[in-house]
Design a binder for these strands. Sequence first.
RNA 1: GCACCUAUGGUGAAAUGGAUAUCACAACGGUCUUCGGAACCGUUAUUCUGGGUUCGAAUCCUGGUAGGUGCACCA
Length: 556
Amino acid sequence: MYKGLEKGIKKALSELGMPEIAFSLEHPKELSHGDYMSNVALIVGKQEGKNPIELAKDIVKELENQKIKGVEKIEVAGPGFINFTLNRNIFVRGLVAAQDKEWGNTEVYKGKKILVEHSSPNLFKPFHIGHLMNNTIGEALYRLAKSSGAKAIPISFPSDISLGVAKAVFVLLEKYGEDFDPSDITALGDAYVEGTKRFEEDETIQSRVKEIADNLYAERKSPELEIFQKCKKFNIKYFEDVVAKLGSNFDSYIYESDAGVDGKKIVLENTPKVFTESEGAVVYIPEEEKKLHTAVFINSDGHPTYEAKDIGLLDLKFKRYDPDISIIITDNQQTSHFQVVVDAAGKIKPEWQKNSVHRSHGRMSFKGQKMASRLGNVPLVEDVLGAVVEEVKEKNSDVTDESAQMIAIASIKFAVLRTMAGKDINFDPETSLSFEGDSGPYLQYTAVRAGSLLQKGEGLGLKPDIKNPVVGTETLERLVARFFEVCSRAQEEWAPHYVVSYLLELAQAFNSWYGQGKILDEDTSATAYRLSVVSATRQTLINGLWVLGIEVPKKM
RNA sequence: GCACCUAUGGUGAAAUGGAUAUCACAACGGUCUUCGGAACCGUUAUUCUGGGUUCGAAUCCUGGUAGGUGCACCA
C-alpha cells in the first residue's frame, strides 16, 4: 500500500514535469487527517518557488487519474499536505489477521541471531529495584528481538567475583566459620554491606581481604573458596526464582570470573599492539580525537578490571553464539565505559565492535533518595512487589494471588517502559504507580473486558465475523492495523516505549467506543461484526503486552 | 577543568523537521437500574532562556541558565 502510493506520487511528478525529489510519506498524527500524508508539494513548491497548495492540487488530480488500488480519497490540506484515505475494506480484512496469536510478528531481523544480555546480578547482593529496571527493559528488548523474525537468545552476566565479594566472604567466614551454608539471601547482602564498612576501618582487614581475593581469583583450594562456591550456587538459584517471577529466563550465563580469566589473556596478547603498560598496570589509551578517556584493563595487582572482563565477555559471547547483533543493557552511568571498551575491542576483532549494540537506561531512585546497594539502603524487588500486590488486593479483594501478581508487575513494568529509555525514574509506589488512566492495569483491564464480551457473545451463539461491517468502528480498525508498523519501528530502534504509547491509544479508542453504545444487541450479524473488532483489539493488546513482559489475567 | 546526557501544563510523561503540541494524574463538573466503573464525557492549564537555519522548530545549529553522569587501577 505504502509502496503503491510512493510509486504513484513519483509517477505523478514525472507526468507533471516536476523534479524528482525526496519526500515524506507517513501517518499523520491525527487519524482525521487520513491514513497517509505527504509533504511532496511543499518540497517541490520550495524548490520551484511556486505556491505549494496549487501544486498539491495538480498532483492530486494526477493521482486521482491513476486510480491507485485501495485509495479512497485524496485531499489537499493545511499549507499543502496531501492526505490519503484508504479504502475501509483493507482494514476490515485486517481484522482477521489481527485475531491471530502471531499478529505483530515482523521480519525486521529475519534470519539473524540476536543476543540480549541483561539483568546481570551481583551474586552477593539481593536483587533490588535497580536490577528491576534493567530486567524490565532487557526482557522487553529480548521479546522485541524474538518477534522480529530473529533467533533471540537471552543471557546474563553474573558478577561473581570482585574485591567486594571478597569483603563479604571475609565477614561470612569470621561470623559463621568454615561450615557456613547459606539459606537466606539477606545474610549475604548484609555481609556485603558490613564488609564494605569493615574494609574501610582497618588495615589488617584490608590485607586479609586482598588475600581472600587472590585465592578466589586463582581458585585456590581454601575455606574462602568453599564458602564462595556455596554462596554462588545458592545465589544463582535465588536469582532464577526472582527473574522467573518477573517473566524472564536465560539461555546461559557467562560468569565474570570466567570472563576475567579470558579477558586478561586477550589483553596481554594484544599488548603492546592495542594496550599499553603504564605504572605497573595495562591500560588502553584511545586516540585523542575520539574524546574517550584512558582506562585500566589490568590493574597493578595483575587482576583484570571490569574493562578486561568485558573484553573476555565479548570473546566468550561471540565464541559461544556468533551473533549478528549483540545487545547489552546497562544503566547510563556506564555509557562512557562501554565506549572505551568497544573502541578497544574493535581493534582486537572488528566484529566485536560492529555487531555490538549498547542500550542504556536511567537510574531508579527510590522516593527521591539516591541509593547504593553496597550501603544497603536499596529496596529489594521482592519487598516492592509484595507491597504492590497488597495494594492491588486492597483495591479488589476478589482477585486471585496469581492475578494480583500479574497486575502488580504490569503497573511496575509499565512505569519503567512508558518512558524513553535513558531517563531516570523516581520510583515512589505511592505516586508513580497507578492502576488507573495511563497504566499497565488499564491495558490489562481493557483486554479482560474485551475477553468478557467475547465470552458473552459465545454464550449467545455468536462468533466474530467480518461479513457485515457496521459504522462506528472505523477508528479502531485503522488503529489495530498500525500495530504491525509500531512493532517494526520499536524493533528497528530498540525502543519498547512506542509499543506502550500505541497500546494506550488503542485501549482508549476501544473504551471510548465501548461507552458509546451496546456491542451485543439483537442484530446478530452486526454483533458478529463488532465481536470481530473486539477480538482483534483484544489480541492486539495481548500481543503488545507480551512484548512488554506483561501478562493478562483472566479476571481482575 | 574536560566530555556526555537532560530541561514540555501544578505533577508524571508522549510527539519520524510538519497541520490546532498529545496522554494520564491532580483540580473542577457530568455519565451510573452497567455487554465488567481499574470505565466513559467535559472544563482549566504546557515546549528553561537569547540568537540562528527552515516554507515550517519541542525537535537541527549556537551562546546562556539549571540539573544529572563520567573522566587510571571499584563494578
